[in-house]
Design a protein around this nucleic acid. Sequence first.
DNA 1: AATGAATGAGTGTTCATTCAT
DNA 2: GATGAATGAACACTCATTCAT
Lengths: 210, 210, 210, 210
Amino acid sequence: MARKQNREERRAEIVQALLRVMAHRGYERATVQAIAKEAGLTPGLLHYHFGSKQEILVALVGTIAEVSEQRLAALLAEAEGPDARLAAYLRARLGMGPGAAPEIVAAWVMVGAEAVRQPEVRQVYQRVMAAELRRAETLISEGLAASVRRTEGANAIAAGLVALMQGAFLLASAAPETLPVGYALGQARAYVDAAIAEAPMAAATSTQPS
Amino acid sequence: MARKQNREERRAEIVQALLRVMAHRGYERATVQAIAKEAGLTPGLLHYHFGSKQEILVALVGTIAEVSEQRLAALLAEAEGPDARLAAYLRARLGMGPGAAPEIVAAWVMVGAEAVRQPEVRQVYQRVMAAELRRAETLISEGLAASVRRTEGANAIAAGLVALMQGAFLLASAAPETLPVGYALGQARAYVDAAIAEAPMAAATSTQPS
Amino acid sequence: MARKQNREERRAEIVQALLRVMAHRGYERATVQAIAKEAGLTPGLLHYHFGSKQEILVALVGTIAEVSEQRLAALLAEAEGPDARLAAYLRARLGMGPGAAPEIVAAWVMVGAEAVRQPEVRQVYQRVMAAELRRAETLISEGLAASVRRTEGANAIAAGLVALMQGAFLLASAAPETLPVGYALGQARAYVDAAIAEAPMAAATSTQPS
Amino acid sequence: MARKQNREERRAEIVQALLRVMAHRGYERATVQAIAKEAGLTPGLLHYHFGSKQEILVALVGTIAEVSEQRLAALLAEAEGPDARLAAYLRARLGMGPGAAPEIVAAWVMVGAEAVRQPEVRQVYQRVMAAELRRAETLISEGLAASVRRTEGANAIAAGLVALMQGAFLLASAAPETLPVGYALGQARAYVDAAIAEAPMAAATSTQPS
DNA sequence: AATGAATGAGTGTTCATTCAT
DNA sequence: GATGAATGAACACTCATTCAT
């Protein structure tokens, strides 16, 4: 029984419902019925707002990316200097451990698995990961520059960092109780710091004080 | 005896078929028909050798772990000294990049996703990951000891290393073309080396003559 | 009055939209959404003007019959004598080939198929075809009379003619590229001419033997 | 519960079931459930034997064409001379009126309607109609030759004849009770005879009078 | 040990129709 | 008159599993 235009709200509700269902059941078992029930809607209505189940998944990728970005932006706003900015980034991503938002993390892991076999999902997933890589690379480059280091290695360092974080998400969801508590943030920090500390010094561009 | 061999061979064939199909379609879409076809068998026969599709998946986890272990054992046999042993480990896992055996890697990523929602799968997956952690921890401990460092941090370092590797597998499958080539082995190596180098020195347990 | 006019215009627009959609998708696949979009309206409004989708179809049958009749009337107005009138009829129906108005022809074929299974549609369809038969019979009777032939056969001749024309419509829609170009008008003409020429002479009503 | 291989028989049963259901409900309303019920099978089994509902329809076109061809072959076998062969053809097609096998005729009309909008169906439908046209053309050519007439017009005459017959099928299904009884065979015969009789004489190839 | 037809519950999706606004 | 969100019953199709042979 419909009244005002409410597409965007409904779409957001549906996406959130998919996130919750998917975190526990995975994408395939997140049936349209289950998503609809979680959202308090009927299955037919899901298809009124989304052309297909896959479209909801694609929208979910976007939503997670946005939320993730906003969280980072909020923390970055308060950070001054390369070091604090890097710390803010790691806190934004690994928070109080990846277990802090277990549903989002689990859903994201499922998204990764779907990206392996659904080209449309892979496309948006790759776009998000590419942006993430650039983000990390930028912050690492700043850190390198502040230490008067060459920045060419930033890309590879960022890749290692992103891999470490994504792996932490995966393990937190698929093999909890196996890992030491709260290792991720510390190890990520140590990894980046060491990588910066051991990067070759930049060519002395200026140095001479007047 | 011939019977039993046949039985084991058949089971192995079926497991391999699941691996190949799963790498491309994921577990849910890896239909029994498709697995049977890939193995050159009939659907009915699959259920003669395995009670359910899930049992094949569980067997697959074991198979991948075994293969993985054998590969490592082979490389370790030739390695002398803590440093060489660590290098052998990293080479065994990250080989010539995670893209070297893309089907196994992709299948393993899918296994991780299934572990999130299938308790039976999670159980074996966790067991494998726990063993992996112990492996890494042992090798890292050896490295620390060789550098006369305290070994308490080995657990967390191992966790970070395993996360980095699993993340590299995930990204190689879900977001290829996004990452720099061959970063994983180098970054893992750098991460471990720095972690060892920066670990606190071991308390002088012996030697100090008064 | 403006209201009522608006009402009739809207109904006509909807009927035209059904015609166009049906020509390409058939009746079942002509969804209310698609018809509404084609007419530039909303689905809800469609049901304000028509009680059901079937009602639109019934209205369409009437519309096609009317248009068809008007076209014939216009051509008949210029025709003098039985022969010219018959020619006008055939031209009105087979025009420049049945492909001249492909959407109407295809929609009409779809109407015929729906008439097979929807009694309400069959009723109006039969009414239209009965009128068509009488039309043809009258014109043929005139032709027979002008040739001093008995007119009892006119009914059967008309049936054959109508069948030929409807068959031509069907084949033009369902099997284009299969038939020779422009055969229909010529063959229909030849069929009627021969039927008249070979009808038995009328009983000598006015007996003067030579 | 399955045993011997029986694909062909099952497929034939399913096709026959589609024919019967389609004759009354049309293709869209011939649901897989309804077809399965008519055949005494389960819906899943239909999809075991046919990839899709459309495939059943395509198979039906082939079946009707075969049956039709066999009926014609049987009648042709007994016919001697062009005239008798043409008569056999018309009897094979229009039998004791198109109402003699109403289900097949109605199903065929539905096939025609589906051919308008399903390219895959159109393809097979066109193939069948093209073969039918060639058949008619050949027989008419023989008739023309026997009357020492030019045969160039055979194609158009055949087209008119096929149109008349298909139209008769359509009207018999969609508008029964509207048409005179048994007109079709007589009118078709008259049409062909007249067309042959009025065709231009063949160039005197061998005119030797005795 | 092997076959493959058969089942039945469940899947995503479609759609005419309703109705609060 | 007009909107468009909402419903609910269908729809074609999928699939792990069973089982007579």
